[in-house]
Design a protein around this nucleic acid. Structure first.
Lengths: 128, 128
DNA sequence: CCTTGACTTGAAGCGCGGTTCAAGTAGGAG
DNA sequence: CTCCTACTTGAACCGCGCTTCAAGTCAAGG
């Protein structure tokens, strides 16, 4: 029922070194030791899924650590999350425009590609 | 008509040190010198807008450098851009889900917040 | 002409997110 | 009991994207 670090690494795709690093940063902890070896509760897998997800989404590990310990009364954190939500929202729009530009680049014949007027206009739109 | 590095920095919001750094990396170049000082053609502003846009979108500077010199015949690059497009597309979906989760976090009362089942389900969806 | 202040360079330093290394320890198979 | 292997630690190192620093140059304004 307890997982050692190799098992957690295998199941999450994270390197053991990364798991120890996350521990130092306060993102996860082992439930105990088997001799010297860390013994993890399976729940750590969900936690790591969340961490990976948030990290991929552009949260720093420090932000994630804060978020993981959040209690409903933490209004400062709630405000932070609301700000993050707006940030993510802007990013979604920006990336959507970028994707459209990339889609165009796949069929565009301008030489060099960056000189394409359609591209330039997309960049101008993105700047706003 | 020629801009010095301070002017370019002011107009783009990038630090002069960043502009020199980009030059070393082959992303931009000055059109000449006024004494020792770099003299930039105004077109560099558009180029920098594109660089900033791409960088914000998760391209590395090395990728951007490659992209900036792209000619229509570069099929390897075209393939790379197509892959990047798929990547960006996935990212948009992931971020959209994340934004929805953040929106929920703003009104959720679970203690700690990460224990919220709605949240956990969102993470599971994101993992696929 | 002299001063000022923005520019020049190369090298070093930084924050992030880890990885790698050296040296040591111990669970479990044979 | 011995051996193998996966684990343990702290410290050093890495790539990225810059910034900072020290030392020096020079264009423009008074």
């Amino acid at each position: 029922m307890e997982l050692d670090i190799g098992e957690v690494a295998r199941r999450t795709g994270l390197a053991p070194s990364a798991l120890r690093f996350y521990e130092r940063k306060g993102l996860i902890e082992a439930d105990g030791r088997n001799g010297l070896r860390r013994a993890y509760h399976p729940g750590v897998l969900d936690r790591l899924a969340l961490i990976t997800c948030a990290r991929d989404a552009g949260f720093t590990l420090a932000e994630i650590a804060r978020f993981l310990s959040a209690r409903p009364g933490d209004e400062a954190l709630r405000a932070h999350l609301a700000a993050k939500e707006r940030e993510v929202d802007e990013r979604v729009e920006q990336l959507t425009r970028l994707r459209d530009s990339l889609r165009h680049a796949a069929v565009c014949d301008h030489d060099p590609l960056v000189e394409c007027p359609e591209f330039k206009q997309a960049v101008r739109r993105a700047r706003r």
